[in-house]
Amino acid sequence: MRGLWQFTLAELRLNLRNPTALFWSIAFPTLWMSLFGALFSEPMPGFGYEGLNYANFLLPAGISIVILASAFIGMPIALTTYRETGVLKRLRVTPLKISTLALGFTISQFLFIALVIVVLFVVGKIFFDVQVLGSWLALLGMIIFGMVTFLSLGSAIGSVVGSWRADAVITQIIFIPMMFLSDMFMPISIFPEWLQPICHALPLTPLNVILRDIVYGVPIDNLWQLGILGGWLVAGAVVTIVFFRWE
């Protein structure tokens, strides 16, 4: 594991220097939360939180966006760029082990997301008086589970996406549609019936639903959805292992 700490630190620093990563991971969710927080005062109907504090509706969605943006935009772009420009090849002729590289890369993304979530929470607390009514421990656990799952999916995308213009493809084909279909901005019940099972199978849906239930402190009656998240986690890891290329 020699080099792990320095590699993690370097990658974290590089993330903070990358304007694309900063925009999608920090500016976008913060602005989104502030805009919706200023425009609306009640949770949208159809989610089952009518009459409750609206700001609490914003926080879990913000957290989801941060996780999604970092894992699906920042990380695959970094990975694809590193492969295309030969950074991975250069690292390969050092004694740095691939397991150390993968771990360091994941931890740096993890710390980056954690940092952004703290920013988001502070913004939510100061401007909209966000309150976490459920268990903090459950919230933390769910955030970590979500991060690990989405980083696994992000590395899978980074491994599969070859020399395409990765950022455009990922945002247009996966990122934007998924945000709309996964019980974040609008309830799944408004979509046609044939589409709803697909919505439920998306990895972002369980994250949204469960994070929101925890923040609102309502009993979680859909723990089965954790299985969906777990399934995506495994699928992402398998795809990464099969398709990962140094060059």
Partner: peptide, 14 residues
């Protein structure tokens, strides 16, 4: 060993 690859790159913003 020390290696200079053909057209080496490292992390661009480092």
């Amino acid at each position: 060993i020390g290696v200079l690859l053909q057209a080496t790159s490292i992390q661009p913003d480092i």
